[in-house]
Structure formats: C-alpha cells, structure tokens
C-alpha cells in the first residue's frame, strides 16, 4: 500500500480501472486515513474510498469479495472512543471515520504435521499453550468482522471440544483481527484452523462416495473424457458447455438422472 498524489478534481464523474465509477453529482464525505483527512464519495467501500483517495493496494487486498481476509480494518468514529472492525472491501465509508488497515498481524503459527500430531485436544494445547492465557475478555469476538464467536471456540478448545471449536470457527477468514486485540497474545485463528484440520482428519467420518470417486479417477476412468476435451476447440467447448445436461432446478432428490450414464 502506498500513497500517490490526490486527484485534483474533487468529484470526478468517471473513474477507471480499480477506481469507482461515480454517479453524476456524487456527494463526498470526509474520512481520515492514517490521520490525514480525505474527501471521498459516499457509498464507496473503505477499499474503494482509499483508492479514490490515491492509495494503491499492493498487499492488503485480495478477493474484494469479503472472504479472503486480506483487508481487515480498524476504525473509529470522530468523537467516540469505540473501536469498530470490518473488511475494507465490504464496509461502506461513513463521514468522520478514522481508518487503519491491519493487513497482517504477527501471530504465532505453530509447525506441525497433521499426520503425526494425532486427534486429541492435547495436541492443540501442546502447540498453542498460550490458549491458557485467555482471560475471557471477549475483545476477540467483538473484533471479528465475520461475527464468529471467537471466545466461544477458544473456550471449547480449552475444554477439549475440538468439534465444537471447528464448527464455531467455520466462518473464520483468517484475517487476524482477533489476535490483534488479544491481551493473552493468543493466535486464535491459527488455533481454530488447526482444530478444523484435526476435525476433518481425525473426527469427521470419511465420505465413502468420495473414496470411490477418487479410486475411479486414479484408475483412469475419466482419462479418455479429459483427453477428448483437451483436443476440442474453444468454440466447441463453449457449445458443449451450453448444451450440457443439467439437473432441473428444484428437482426432487433422486428423481433425476442424466441420459448419458457412462461416466457415473
């Protein structure tokens, strides 16, 4: 992220590239980026507003769709003590916002081999003993832009309940805002990721149909089909895609099967 000169025109009618395309006569509002005041069009997201103000995101921006966790932002409204947290690509600017990006937080991430550590909660405790420094202040939960019950899953981990921790943390996007607020210096999101991995590897039953499908793939069942597709022209591929057989929307489960069955 680096700053370039602010656009001279206060409210440009058209912005190009990553810049916002503004409606005619768009209203602007003041926001503060790293303490400096900028006039930005209202209705933009924080990320778009920062780009409008002249910042380029080299890091700290990813999917722009609220799921990659690269653009966590801390903000505060002028005149109030309360800190708020959000994703820059999802949160709309408001007048008098003080903004700071936290694109990365130096949280401890343990090294492990999932095959070697085993499926017991003690494996997580041994890799992240700092879990036991939690004081239940709940700042992590308050900071989460995905509304994850962070204190809830940390408590579950301390109680040895990996399944509960895995389920409670499912919406985590690994942005690290929880860790940035933690007085116990706990890397909540890394511990939760480990819990989900252990849950997937050791606790959830294996899906039998997946096993059969993987065996079929490894046995070369689909090789001919893939080779055929690789030979086709782009036009033919597009035609084939458009004309493909599809399960009708809202079909009753078990009521439909394709006419072509040789790949089943």
């Amino acid at each position: 992220m680096c700053e370039t000169k602010q656009k001279t025109q206060a409210t440009p009618k058209v912005a190009t590239g990553d810049r916002a395309i503004l409606p005619e006569g768009a209203k602007t509002i003041p926001v503060y980026i790293m303490g400096k005041k900028y006039e930005v069009p209202e209705t933009l997201t924080i990320m778009k507003a920062m780009e409008f103000a002249g910042f380029h995101f080299l890091r700290g921006a990813g999917c722009r769709g609220g799921i990659c966790g690269a653009c966590p932002t801390v903000y505060r409204m002028a005149g109030d003590y309360k800190l708020h947290f959000g994703l820059a690509c999802q949160t709309v600017v408001q007048a008098d916002m003080y903004l700071a990006q936290i694109p990365f937080f130096p949280a401890n991430r343990a090294d492990y081999s999932i095959e070697e550590i085993g499926g017991l909660p003690e494996a997580i405790h041994a890799l992240y003993p700092e879990l036991f420094r939690c004081v239940a202040c709940n700042q992590c939960t308050k900071a989460c832009p995905m509304d994850v019950d962070v204190l809830g899953y940390i408590s579950a981990l301390k109680q040895g309940n990996i399944e509960k921790a895995a389920k409670l943390s499912f919406d985590c996007i690994q942005c690290g805002l929880c860790a940035s607020r933690c007085m116990g210096e706990i890397p909540q999101y890394h511990a939760a990721q480990l819990a989900r991995r252990i849950y997937g590897r050791y606790i959830l039953p294996n899906a039998e149909h997946l096993k059969t499908r993987v065996e079929a793939i490894e046995a070369g069942h689909y090789d001919a089909m893939l080779a055929e597709l690789e030979q086709m022209s782009k036009e033919d591929l597009e035609k084939k895609y458009v004309e493909r057989e599809r399960e009708p929307d809202f079909a009753e489960v078990g009521s439909w099967s394709p006419a072509e069955t040789k790949y089943l």
Partner: peptide, 16 residues
Amino acid sequence: KETITELPQIALVAGF
C-alpha cells in the same frame, strides 16, 4: 510438549 499434554488445564491456566 509432553508436560503440557500431561498437565490438567487448571494447572496451565493457574500457572500462566
């Protein structure tokens, strides 16, 4: 790691 694995949670919470 063996010590942490063996100790009850309250020992770790209290000790930390």
